[in-house]
Computed example of a mutant assay.
Amino acid sequence: MTAHTHAHSHPDSPDGTKGKNLLLTMVLKIVLTIAEVLGGWLSGSLSLLSDALHNLSDVLSIIISWFAVRMAAKEHDKKNTFGYRRATIIAAVINATLLIIMSLFLFREAYFKFIQPEKINALLVIVIAAIGIILNAVAVYLLHKSSGDDLNMRAVYLHFLSDALSSVGVMVGGIVIYYFEAYWIDPALTVLIGLYILKESYEILKESANILMQGTPKTVDIDEMAEELEKLDAIKNIHHVHIWALDEHTLFFEAHVNLQNDILVSELADIYKKVEQILKGRFGVTHLTIQFEYNCCEDMGRVLDKE
């Protein structure tokens, strides 16, 4: 007998908090991009123009994320029985990849600036950087709450946090250049910011890839789960265990449960209820499928490569 159950979670709709905040942050980013293009052109600062290009890529990432939130809010149907929640994971992969590409671009620009420092209008750079700090800080505040449990929103949040840090670096660099004409400060700060972006982007990319590959979440211990279930008197062993995440909030569990005794189907309800309570209450499983057996697959391990 196979039994299954699942719990529903409802992501924010595109008209909800996430969607509105993404649209608002996109407006802020467009305003900042325009300001940096004008500031870079007037001051002769290549760093501001480079940051403007970075911000333009952020606008693209926000658009991708907003559509992902909208897609994830759609209900499942016959065509996509699992629904569309993985759209946010795909968006996280795209955004993290963009961040890595932009980091490499920043390293390249920093290299050339080390070789040939350029004189700039430091005062104008400081003013534009201050504007960048304010706008990015507002965006970080708007996205902070949603970034903790959503990879897609976390990737966008990281975009703005890195931009805020970048603006702080540009401002500090502008101040040092204004007073000491130490033009090497600008590329040095760029390298430090780029290293931070690379580290955080890699973590997002690794976690997203694990979900897309239906890997076991790092917070889950298959043996611990099986051992806990095998403490029930009615269960002999657990095998054919498969665990994967649909997104950050939806954890799937399926397994074959070998029973101690050959019992009636009607008697399985109580056993199933106990299994469900353990998996949902202790391990956060939201959807489980159990195949009950008696004297089957005797020498099988927890996880099998072949069914």
Rank of each mutant, 00 (worst) to 15 (best):
S147D: 05
G39F: 05
V127W: 09
V275Q: 15
A182W: 15
I126A: 04
I238R: 02
E36G: 02
H239L: 04
D305T: 09
A122H: 00
E230D: 12
A139Q: 02
A92M: 04
T81Y: 03
A139S: 13
L99H: 10
L32A: 13
D15Q: 14
A129C: 11
L192D: 08
M1K: 02
N210Y: 11
L304P: 05
V285T: 04
H159G: 01
G40F: 13
L124A: 08
I94C: 10
K78A: 09
F292N: 00
I64E: 06
T286V: 06
E207H: 02
M213Y: 15
Q214H: 14
A73S: 14
I134W: 07
L251P: 06
I115K: 08
N136W: 04
N95Q: 11
V285F: 06
L264K: 06
F160T: 00
M71Y: 08
E200A: 13
I101W: 09
I64N: 11
I278Y: 02
H6K: 00
H76E: 14
I235C: 06
K273F: 12
K273N: 14
H240Y: 11
N121H: 13
L53T: 02
S61W: 03
A137P: 05
R86F: 10
L60A: 14
L232T: 01
S162W: 01
G173K: 00
L23V: 08
A245R: 00
D233M: 03
V127D: 10
N80H: 15
D12P: 01
L99K: 07
V27G: 03
K274G: 14
D262P: 06
A72F: 12
E109F: 08
D163G: 04
L229C: 04
N237S: 11
L246N: 08
H144Y: 15
I238G: 11
E276F: 09
Q214F: 13
N295V: 01
A139I: 06
E109M: 13
A73L: 01
L24E: 12
T5G: 09
